[in-house]
Design a protein around this nucleic acid. Sequence first.
DNA 1: ACATTTTTGATTTACGTACATCAAGATTTC
DNA 2: GAAATCTTGATGTACGTAAATCAAAAATGT
Lengths: 345, 345
Amino acid sequence: MRPTVHDIAAKAGVSLATVDRVLNNRPGVRSVTRDKVERAIVTLGYVRDVAAANLAKGRNYPFVFILPAGDNSFMRGLEGEVRAAMARSASERTQITILPVPAFDAQALVQALSDAHQRRPAGVAVVAVDAPEVAEAVKQLRDDGIAVVTLVSDLPGSGRDHFAGVDNIAAGRTAGTLMGRFTCGRAGPIAMLAGSMLVRDHRDRLEGFTAVMAEEFPARRLLPVIEGQDDPVLVEKLVHALVEREPDLAGIYSLGAGNRGLIAALDKTGKSKMVCAIAHELTSHNRAALRSGTIDAVLNQDAGHEVRSAIRVLKARADGLAVIEAQERIRIDIFLKDNLPIEQA
Amino acid sequence: MRPTVHDIAAKAGVSLATVDRVLNNRPGVRSVTRDKVERAIVTLGYVRDVAAANLAKGRNYPFVFILPAGDNSFMRGLEGEVRAAMARSASERTQITILPVPAFDAQALVQALSDAHQRRPAGVAVVAVDAPEVAEAVKQLRDDGIAVVTLVSDLPGSGRDHFAGVDNIAAGRTAGTLMGRFTCGRAGPIAMLAGSMLVRDHRDRLEGFTAVMAEEFPARRLLPVIEGQDDPVLVEKLVHALVEREPDLAGIYSLGAGNRGLIAALDKTGKSKMVCAIAHELTSHNRAALRSGTIDAVLNQDAGHEVRSAIRVLKARADGLAVIEAQERIRIDIFLKDNLPIEQA
DNA sequence: ACATTTTTGATTTACGTACATCAAGATTTC
DNA sequence: GAAATCTTGATGTACGTAAATCAAAAATGT
């Protein structure tokens, strides 16, 4: 059987109360006694039974998730994963509140962070907009002992505890390699379609993509970046104009959202088979387009993993425990039509 | 606060003991009383505090993992993951025993299953060899109420509770799509290198690969399958002979192990850049070859996920709980040199 | 109506930890 | 050397559930 606090007390020749004082570093223990107890802990290989400890403490973790509103499929999927986590809150001792904010609105996000602050949660997870005033608001939370994790889009220099999202430069590089190799049979230029250059993840993806294209496929002509504002209607219009302007277009890398528009434009112009399309996030639209062949590859970040990782990290930080960064890294999934997971409800 | 057994007792107007009898379906409760209690459970939305229950029960789960011996990097990685799970056994209340068996040896595996049976564990995880006598041995375990999960390689028709591994037909199809597209600039045939056609996962991968090649790239010539017995030395010899025999070889799909030999042969013959190589499992050799460009893509199954999933399923089965199959599906990871995760210790 | 069986209640102990209280012992301070 | 402080022990309660015991009550059979 694994050792308990009683075993430590016996081994160290002290009382249970003293062991408790050491374990929960309460005051009132001489350093010699503390040493004795700590040695006993090490030699016995004691590890605290977290389940029992949480039971005794009646511990629970109030968290706030700040998510962008709007009809972005990926973000709605993310919200779904947060709600799934809320459904598990009984067994995980979490109490999660969702705070919706308008997308790409730094000021609204600052307000939401302030609202979250007032609720005095143990931690906050936020899909960040990259702006100094947002970083400042995050700092205030941290100063007040509230753990902060950025979700999907990071906010460097804010002192956030952790970023639960993918390496978007690597994602862009991967897209570049796939694009370069998939289009090796065709001449013609390659287009890049972003949502907005104001958000960090889009900038990072673009950087990785253009770097690989320059290094590995220098002969390939890259068209200027198109910004579709993640809006399906605008995206469709822009892509339609693009394929008319560039009849020998070889490929298009969509590094943001609004892919419904991209798919519609390619299908309607009959370019689906000719143009190699690579997009992000395995939404239902992208999934269908992958299956039909309109989209050739999808890079995905698993929203469920991100949410669960964020919660694990927030819990650990709330308890003052260390986080194994390597274990919390979110991978970039590559989907082709042949390795699509079965759709879930 | 979430409701407790006491709340149920009060609500249903019965004693705590009766609530306990209902919850753990012990005998001695009239059906009318049982109904009253169950209604109270539903209306209060009671969910058992698993942590407290396990604490009270002192529950633990003795499991046996049967793994192939030998120097197969993937299998050693798998064993590492099982050992990592053993290190967590204190907090997970598991007691895991590893039973090594010679690889590809049905008779030895039957013996190991029988040994496992005698230990009377709550569950067994086994890397299966596809043979009727193995299926029979698995059936005997199941008949004795021991949960059985196949790991990595499945054993259909054995009545195993679950398969913790990837869809190898889909893996082969994915490899086929990548191969077809990556080699679109080059003429020349494509070779397939298997370990042995006696194991099911290799057969499945081959089936998927050849199917996609036939459907999508019918012009491409496929060479007869080479069997390298997962042995690096033999593989190197065979691949060396292959590239001399087929100087315009466009690609090679290695669907088994022993990739050290493949990498060495390609590097020594100076064919690394010309031949598109796709292999399985992100071992340290494959990782290095991916980085250097000798291997172009690696399909990976995450051994850690497989082990953790197997344990979750075994626990659920031991407790007679349902398993959400969709949640336990193991994905096929595609790695290019641009999305390689940082190497871990 | 009685004996018998089944059902229910009341109560206790246990799991491993947290946390509080009070008293007693050991040290330090003046 | 007495007073003040610091350190430790002893003990109890709590968290939510499991499981056992024994007594009491209710239902059943004859």
